[in-house]
Amino acid sequence: MIRINEEIKKELSDIIRQDLKDPRINQTMVSVLNVDTTNDLKYCKIYISIMGDEEQKQGVIDGLKSASGFIRREIARRINLRNTPELIFKMDDSIEYGIRLSKLIHDVNSNTEDDSQ
């Protein structure tokens, strides 16, 4: 399953980057963070991170959901699986959360250095 998940993740990243023409998706930076496929290959949860405001995030999710048939067909063509799973896109804000924490730590450190001088 780990190998299948990694292969789906690689192909999905390639499809999003090169093959999708939806302007909602191409305007923002979209990263595929994790793929979790069920053992029976019926469903595949795809965790994605999107840099942008809430409106852009919702637009990307809507664009991916509307293109899920095309994406599923492309994955079936590129990867030889018994069943091609149904794709479920989930938002993952961990990258934005990490960036925000890093910025807060940097701000605290710079304020501490300013106070000590």
Rank of each mutant, 00 (worst) to 15 (best):
M1I: 12
I2P: 01
I2D: 06
R3G: 12
I4Q: 10
I4G: 02
I4W: 09
I8R: 11
I8M: 07
S13D: 04
D14W: 01
I15K: 01
D19G: 04
D19R: 03
K21I: 13
D22W: 00
P23V: 07
I25S: 09
N26W: 13
T28P: 01
V30M: 01
S31P: 05
L33W: 08
N34P: 12
D36A: 04
C44N: 05
K45N: 15
K45F: 11
K45Y: 12
Y47N: 12
I48E: 05
I50A: 12
M51D: 14
M51Y: 15
D53F: 04
E54W: 10
E55Y: 14
G59Q: 05
G59K: 08
G59Y: 04
V60C: 02
D62T: 12
S68N: 02
S68Y: 02
R73V: 09
I75N: 14
R77P: 03
R77I: 13
R78G: 05
N80K: 11
N80Y: 10
L81G: 03
T84K: 11
P85S: 05
F89G: 00
K90Q: 09
M91H: 10
D92V: 03
D92C: 11
S94G: 08
I95Y: 08
E96A: 11
E96F: 07
E96S: 10
I99Y: 12
I99R: 11
R100T: 09
S102F: 13
I105H: 09
I105R: 01
I105A: 14
N109G: 15
S116Y: 10
Q117F: 15
